[in-house]
């Protein structure tokens, strides 16, 4: 469904991503794992069109997307739940959720999806009139995911959703990711939390200083001591 071919991204001073190739088959949960600053977030930013590619190509459902504008990429169904949530802190939970459906015109479908989001995250319904910035970290992550789902994504990319969450909340997150995937949404997960990755995804790419150094079945990679020690602590 999504193919990154030899993608390189350069910032002014350095190469953040070097010749990365990743493939995300339809219906799967694929993870990208690596330490801080390894270039994981840059990969997602490049897919969403927030940073330009220096070289390489990104394809979604057979269509080249690496020169498209951010909003066009969202319109194709490639939706990102960004690192740090990037909510609109002074707007209500409800307003945040509605903005997730910004490009949609089907009122009825939107209402149905909103019900679905509230069923998935009942806490958000209770707090729908509260300002997003006043939510707890876990609730904010739920809101960010709920907002992403409102776009009716084909591919949902999540950037370190476990960051700053308590272990109990991470369990809930794992369930949520599985539920989302079972509803037919392909997931690309960027993480540092190895336990979350092993619980939800099938295939995993290990990134180190902007390169893919290892890829393969999650169980096998995690069984490998050197991988665990080097990347996952």
């Amino acid at each position: 469904m999504l193919k990154l071919k030899d993608v390189t991204v350069r910032y002014e001073t350095a190469e953040a991503v070097r010749g990365v190739s990743i493939e995300v088959p339809e219906g799967s949960v694929i993870s990208v794992i690596g330490a801080n600053g390894a270039g994981k977030s840059t990969i997602l930013k490049a897919i969403s069109g927030l940073v330009p590619l220096y070289s390489g190509e990104i394809e979604f459902s057979g269509q080249k997307i690496n020169r498209m504008a951010v909003n066009q990429i969202v319109d194709l169904g490639v939706v990102q739940v960004p690192e740090g949530r990037r909510l609109f802190p002074y707007m209500s939970v409800m307003a945040n959720i509605k903005l997730g459906a910004y490009l949609r015109r089907d009122k009825r479908g939107m209402m149905a999806d909103m019900e679905e989001v509230f069923r998935l995250f009942p806490r958000l319904k209770e707090r729908s009139n509260q300002k997003a910035g006043s939510l707890s970290g876990g609730e904010q992550q739920m809101l960010a995911i709920g907002r992403g789902l409102m776009a009716r994504p084909k591919l949902l990319m999540m950037d370190e959703p476990s960051l700053g969450l308590a272990p109990v909340v991470i369990d809930l997150l794992a369930d949520t990711i599985r539920t989302i995937n079972q509803s037919g949404i392909t997931v690309l997960l960027v993480e540092q939390n190895a336990s979350l990755v092993t619980r939800v995804s099938q295939k995993c790419y290990v990134i180190e200083v902007g390169r893919v150094v290892l890829e393969g079945n999650v169980q096998e990679l995690m069984a490998d001591d050197s991988v665990r020690r080097a990347f996952l602590g």
Binding site: S48, L50, V70, N71, V74, D75, V79, Q80, P82, R85, R86, L87, F88, P89, Y90, M91, L99, G100, Y102, L103, R147, A151
Partner: peptide, 10 residues
Amino acid sequence: QDRDGAALQG
């Protein structure tokens, strides 16, 4: 309130 966050909503 959040430029990139807004762009990512389309």
